[in-house]
């Protein structure tokens, strides 16, 4: 059994016809990725509903994971964030629309608010209830950043837990001015040399990054260098490569409204999820 990347996993629930299915789903994810599962319910419920919930919980009890129910009140996002802090949650699972409508894009969905404010890792799932125990390809960002090694370590663990076949570490090379200004043959030659050098440099760095992890029979670890706008190309590549999961660093600053108006970085991926998205929150050691 591979080591699980997370301990405490939390997911929000609400009373709906899908309640039971959603809860089963969360249990399955937890069995693959963590040890404890917290259901967080925000808001009041009738007695009958509460009883119903407890019956389902009783059925869900398994030997390998612990399941807990938390009642919270108030604003849903704030309540979730509060309980994440209180119970030392390290992964929050949330459903998300693969693509946000124009209005939602500017107003922000709950999932997006969570991404912006949370202090733990977060898994955004585009198609709940479709979870299977295997996953073909995982794409991880390989950006030069102190958080990246930890993100990669988590991604490898997740890949092992999900029995993924391939893990691609991707670096996005933003062509700089000299590389873009190709007006004639001389400049083209120079631009290509510069690009070659840059690619070699980045490739060395990526190789160093993945060196602690070995390609095994089960999991092939690959690197790839993309050219284009940072934050955008990784999503595009995930789509082109038909990957099932994209793993990224958590944003350095809390994202605000202006970040959505002037799209950059993580916002490109958030506005149109190319696959499921795992945002890894790094813990400072």
């Amino acid at each position: 059994m591979p080591t699980k990347p997370f301990d405490n996993i939390a997911t929000a629930i609400a009373f709906s016809p899908n309640l039971e299915a959603n809860m089963h789903e969360s249990v399955r994810i937890t069995r693959m990725l963590g040890h404890k599962l917290f259901f967080i319910h925000v808001g009041e419920g009738t007695e009958a509903e509460k009883e119903n919930l407890h019956t389902i919980l009783a059925q869900l009890a398994t030997d390998d994971i612990e399941v807990k129910l938390i009642w919270e009140k108030g604003d849903i996002v704030e309540a979730l964030l509060r309980s994440c802090a209180d119970y030392a949650i390290d992964l929050l699972v949330a459903g998300a629309q693969p693509r946000e409508g124009l209005l939602r894009y500017y107003m922000g969905s709950i999932a997006r608010q969570l991404v912006r404010k949370t202090n733990c890792s977060i898994l955004l799932m585009t198609h709940p209830n479709k979870l299977q125990s295997r996953c073909g390809k995982i794409v991880v960002n390989g950006i030069a950043h102190p958080k990246t090694p930890q993100t990669l370590a988590v991604a490898v663990k997740v890949a092992n837990c999900l029995h993924a076949g391939e893990l691609i570490v991707v670096e996005e090379v933003v062509p700089d001015k000299a590389m873009e200004n190709v007006a004639d043959d001389k400049q083209l030659q120079r631009a290509n040399e510069m690009r070659k050098n840059k690619v070699n440099r980045e490739q060395d760095r990526l190789n160093g990054l993945v060196s602690p992890f070995e390609t095994t029979e089960e999991l092939r670890i690959d690197t790839k260098i993309l050219f284009g706008k940072r934050g955008y190309t990784i999503g595009h590549f995930t789509q082109t490569a038909c990957a099932d999961l994209l793993v990224m660093n958590s944003p350095d600053t809390k994202l605000g409204f202006l970040d959505r108006v002037f799209t950059h970085g993580l916002e490109y991926v958030l506005s149109e999820l190319p696959s499921d998205l795992l945002i890894v929150h790094s813990h400072e050691k």
Binding site: L102, V199, K224, I225, L226, F227, G228, K229, Y232, T233, H236, F237, Q239, T240, T263, Y268
Partner: peptide, 24 residues
Amino acid sequence: LRNFFKPNTLLFLESSGQYHLSVR
């Protein structure tokens, strides 16, 4: 309308040595 201002190209070198330029 949704993608008018967004970037839409991706370029990478395939392992076989040819460039792959994907447009979305």
